[in-house]
Amino acid sequence: MDNKVTVSRKAHFNAAHRLFKPEWSDEKNLEVFGKCSNPKYHGHNYDLVVSVTGTVDSETGFVLNLKKLKDIIYREIEEAFDHKNLNLETEEFKSLNPTTENIAIVIYNRLRPHIKADQELEIILYETERNFVKYSG
């Protein structure tokens, strides 16, 4: 059986952040990032969809056991980011502006080592129900 199938798992985390470049003035940060550059930070209720595409295993019938994917997402993403100030409490964003794009790339990079090399990984990260990014490496 050589059928490619995509399986997905939804997750959720809440996090605060501030979009800014420290070398810019407050005025320029406000001009570029708007309210998201608030020096006192702001938060989002992020929704995450992690999708893995691969061949269905003839023995198990799985592309990837979704319980295993759930555990990986919990350990690598939810525990690391949920109820955190991304700028202050996570190593990745101490020097990287925590835009939704950059958060999606970091999530991908944290998950990729736990997914088989011959399987495709895609991240969809919703900052709001209308604003989201998609990243697949």
Rank of each mutant, 00 (worst) to 15 (best):
F132H: 13
N65K: 08
H114R: 01
V52F: 00
E23D: 13
G54R: 01
Y126I: 01
T53A: 07
I105Y: 08
V5C: 14
N109M: 09
P22Y: 06
S8T: 15
L86W: 07
E129R: 11
V63L: 01
F81R: 03
N65F: 10
I105G: 00
D2V: 07
R130Y: 09
I124R: 15
V106Y: 12
G43I: 06
R9C: 05
P113Q: 03
D47N: 15
E27M: 08
E76G: 09
N29E: 09
N14R: 13
N87L: 09
D26T: 05
A117H: 11
D82F: 08
D57F: 09
N87S: 08
I73C: 04
T90H: 01
A80N: 07
T90S: 00
S8Q: 14
T128S: 04
K10E: 15
E76K: 15
Y108P: 02
N109K: 15
L19G: 02
L69I: 12
H42I: 06
N14W: 04
G34D: 10
E78D: 09
E129Q: 15
V7H: 03
K10G: 10
N3K: 13
L96S: 02
Y41W: 12
K4P: 00
N131G: 00
L66E: 00
R110K: 15
S25T: 15
R18M: 08
P113S: 04
D118R: 03
N87A: 10
E78I: 13
S8C: 13
Y41R: 11
V106H: 14
E79T: 06
V32R: 11
E122H: 00
K10T: 14
S51G: 10
N131C: 07
S37F: 05
L48A: 08
V49A: 13
V5K: 10
F33W: 12
E127N: 03
A104T: 04
K35P: 00
G61I: 10
K40Y: 13
E120H: 06
H44Y: 11
L48Q: 07
T128I: 00
P98A: 06
P39F: 04
E120D: 13
Y41F: 15
V5H: 04
Y74G: 00
G137S: 07
K28N: 06
H44I: 02
L111Q: 02
K134A: 14
I72Q: 01
L125P: 01
D57K: 05
K134E: 11
N97Q: 03
H12I: 08
H114E: 04
N85V: 12
K4F: 14
K116W: 01
S37D: 11
N97W: 06
I103T: 01
I105K: 15
N87Q: 07
A16V: 03
L88A: 12
L64F: 11
E92H: 06
N29M: 05
